[in-house]
C-alpha cells in the first residue's frame, strides 16, 4: 500500500504542472466492432517492410470488414508494451506486432488480455494467444540463387541491417546457388540502416564493378537505391524484384518478381480467428502457399530466363513447397 501511495503522489506531481486533470477518454467505438491494430517499427510510407505490415492491415479492413488502426513506433522498445496495451484495452481483437522485436512485449501483455490475439511477424512463437507468423523468405531466395548460379558469374547481396528476415533470405540465396555450383562467388554487404538509399546504391555499384552480374538488394526503404545502381549498370546485370514491384526502376535487368502477399496470409489467419478457430501452432508461409508467396519469372522484359532453366526451377520449387529441400540456414 505504501508503494502505491508513493507512486500516486509522483503521478499527481507530474500531472499538476500541466493542469490536465479531469478529462475523460472519449470511447466512441462500439463494442461489437471487429477491430485490428498494427504496430510497426518504422514508417509505413516507404516501400518495404513496414508497408507490408500496413498492407496486411488494409487487407483485413477490406476483406473482413474490420475497423483498423496502426501506430509507428520508431524502433522504440519502451513503447511496445504500452501500444499493445492501448489496443487491447480498447477492445481490439487482433493486434499484429510487425517484427520479432515485439515478441517479448506481446507475451507480457497477453497475460492480461486472454481474449485478444497477438500476432507477431517474423517469429516462430506459439504461446497461448501469442502466435508467430513467419514468411520463409529463404525459399524464393533459394530459387533466385539457383538461377543466378546457372546464368551468372558472381552474385552480390546488399542488406540493410543484419536482422533475421534478411539473414534468412540471404542464407536461402547462398544455399540455392551452392546447390548448383558450390564455388559460386557471392559477396554480401550491409549498409547498417534502412534509410540510406545512397549507401545501398554505392554498395551495389561497387559489387558490380567487382564483377557481380546478379545483384539483389534487401534493405527496406533503402532498397530502391540498389535497383538504381543495377539499372545504371546496363542490361548485363540481372536482378530480381523483391517484396514490391521494382520493374519500373530497372526494367531491363529484372528477371523475375518475388512478391509476398503477406496481407493475404494475415487475412486468412485473422479470418480463422474471427470464425473462432484460431491457428493451433505458429504459422509459416512458404512456396506451398501460392496466395501468399509468389515467385514469377518475367516474359515481357528484354532479358528472360531460358526455358530449360525455368523447367528446373519449377521442379525445385515444387520440391521446396513439398518440404523435400531445406532452403534456410541450419
Amino acid at each position: 500500500m505504501k508503494k502505491t501511495a508513493l507512486s500516486r503522489r509522483s503521478l499527481l506531481a507530474s500531472a499538476l504542472g500541466l493542469t490536465l486533470a479531469g478529462m475523460i477518454w472519449p470511447d466512441l467505438a462500439l463494442a461489437e466492432d471487429f477491430k485490428m491494430g498494427l504496430l510497426v517499427p518504422g514508417s509505413v510510407s516507404e516501400e518495404g517492410w513496414n508497408r507490408i505490415g500496413y498492407n496486411a492491415l488494409k487487407g483485413v479492413e477490406d476483406q473482413l470488414d474490420a475497423k483498423i488502426s496502426y501506430v509507428e513506433l520508431q524502433q522504440n522498445p519502451a513503447s511496445f508494451e504500452k501500444a499493445f496495451r492501448d489496443y487491447a484495452s480498447q477492445g481490439y481483437k487482433v493486434i499484429l506486432g510487425h517484427g520479432f522485436e515485439f515478441q517479448d512485449a506481446a507475451l507480457e501483455v497477453a497475460l492480461d488480455y486472454p481474449d485478444t490475439y497477438f500476432l507477431i511477424s517474423s517469429s516462430s512463437i506459439h504461446e497461448g494467444n501469442v502466435i508467430g507468423l513467419n514468411t520463409d523468405t529463404s525459399q524464393p531466395f533459394y530459387l533466385m540463387g539457383v538461377i543466378a548460379a546457372k546464368m551468372g558469374k558472381k552474385a552480390g547481396l546488399v542488406g540493410g541491417m543484419e536482422i533475421p528476415p534478411i539473414q534468412q533470405a540471404f542464407a536461402g540465396f547462398k544455399n540455392g546457388a551452392k546447390s548448383v555450383n558450390p564455388d559460386f562467388p557471392i559477396s554480401e554487404a550491409y549498409i547498417g540502416n534502412f534509410t540510406d538509399t545512397t549507401a545501398a546504391k554505392e554498395a551495389a555499384l561497387s559489387m558490380i564493378s567487382q564483377g557481380a552480374d546478379f545483384v539483389v538488394p534487401n534493405a527496406s526503404g533503402a532498397t530502391v537505391g540498389g535497383y538504381q545502381a543495377i539499372a545504371e549498370s546496363g542490361p548485363d546485370v540481372r536482378s530480381f524484384s523483391i517484396f514490391s514491384d521494382f520493374t519500373p526502376v530497372a526494367p531491363n535487368n529484372i528477371l523475375g518478381l518475388y512478391v509476398a502477399d503477406y496481407a493475404q496470409g494475415v487475412v486468412e489467419v485473422v479470418r480463422s480467428i474471427k470464425d473462432g478457430s484460431p491457428p493451433t501452432e505458429n504459422v509459416v508461409f512458404g512456396l506451398k502457399d501460392p496466395k501468399v508467396i509468389s515467385f514469377t519469372l518475367r516474359d515481357d522484359g528484354p532479358v528472360s530466363v531460358p526455358e530449360d532453366i525455368r523447367a528446373e526451377v519449377k521442379a525445385i520449387s515444387e520440391k521446396v513447397a513439398a518440404g523435400e529441400i531445406k532452403t534456410g540456414a541450419d
Binding site: 540502416n193 534509410t195 538509399t197 545512397t198 549507401a199 526503404g221 537505391g225 538504381q228
Partner: peptide
C-alpha cells in the same frame, strides 16, 4: 543532391 543526383526518391531521414 541526395534525391536529385543520387537516388530518385525521398526517404524519411535520407540524410542519415
Amino acid at each position: 543532391f541526395l534525391t536529385l543526383g543520387h537516388s530518385n526518391q525521398f526517404v524519411e531521414g535520407i540524410t542519415s
